[in-house]
């Protein structure tokens, strides 16, 4: 049975696609068969973050409508052979996805893949609901910032009430908190919610903390998911996330600011 994981958040721009790409490629590098699905119909971007935007021929909606087979639409990653991407369409047809057809596609993918990662669109509209409907697990991507935390809580409500597991009274979706764009320095200065603050408010288990990092923009510029940048703090933090998803217990890193030297403390800067 494939594990269906939705990467969701409510709020836009918190790092869902960056996280989906990094986690997807990280799991595949560990030898698992992984498919990444872009659920953001009309605004596809996962292809760009993965660096395969020029290889998109058919998309998710083509498959749903029967205009292409899954194999025609799936893009094999050039770096990791066990990873595929199913891109979203660029048409604005919001109702293109219906539960039944999406369910069929997921079942078919589940025959081949170990992990199905659903990159959710922002918001709480049909697209986001579709991305989370079939999920077994949810990675709730949150920035340490008021609107993001509130929206994440809304999404937790949706996971508990609007998913297939909720409707069928099955075991609830396993929720994970992924805190992104974390700046230990600002936390120390009392300008940013800390990991503990966000955990207190949302009360779901912490999967990872990704530090605010210049490596993330560089990675998306290049179409190389940041986890491939093994020197970078964000890349290493995502690697920890992948290991935790696979059941390892890994200490949390990048939670404290680098200490300033005595001179810069005395003279500012």
């Amino acid at each position: 049975m494939a594990r269906i994981i939705v990467v969701t958040s409510g709020k836009g721009g918190v790092g869902k696609t960056t996280s989906s790409a990094a986690i997807g490629i990280g799991l595949a590098l560990k030898g698992h068969k992984v498919v990444l699905i872009d659920f953001d119909i009309g605004l596809r971007n996962l292809d760009l973050i993965m660096g395969c935007e020029r290889r998109v021929v058919y998309d998710f909606v083509n498959v749903i409508k029967g205009e292409a087979t899954l194999n025609q639409a799936l893009i094999k990653d050039k770096r990791v052979s066990t990873l595929s991407i199913l891109p979203a369409s660029q048409t604005r047809d919001k109702d293109a996805l219906d539960k039944e057809s999406v369910g069929k596609v997921l079942t078919e993918l589940g025959e081949t893949y170990d992990y199905i990662i659903c990159d959710s669109p922002a918001g709480i509209e049909a697209g986001a609901m579709m991305a989370l409907y079939y999920a077994d697990e949810a990675i709730v991507t949150t920035n340490p910032e008021v609107s993001s935390v509130r929206d994440s809580d809304r999404i937790l409500g949706m996971l508990a009430s609007r998913s297939r597991r909720a409707e069928l009274n099955l075991e609830p979706i396993k929720e994970h908190l992924l805190l992104t764009r974390y700046s230990p320095k600002r936390v120390t200065e009392g300008e940013m919610l800390s990991v503990e603050d966000v955990e207190d408010i949302l009360s779901i288990p912490l999967l990872g903390v990704i530090p605010e990092s210049q490596a993330v923009l560089k990675a998306s510029n290049a179409g190389e998911p940041v986890i491939l940048d093994k020197e970078s703090d964000a890349g290493q933090a995502y690697q920890d996330v992948v290991n935790r998803l696979l059941g390892d217990s890994v200490d949390f890193r990048f939670l404290v600011a680098e200490k300033k030297g005595i001179f810069s403390r005395m003279f500012g800067g």
Binding site: E145, V146, V149, R150, D153, R154, G157, V187, E189, G190, E191, M192, L193, S194, D197, D200, I201, L202
Partner: peptide, 17 residues
């Protein structure tokens, strides 16, 4: 700190919602 204000406001609104 502004962070503790943020936490307090969030705890209230989230509980309410």
């Amino acid at each position: 700190t502004t962070a503790s204000k943020a936490k307090e406001r969030l705890q209230i609104i989230v509980a309410h919602e």
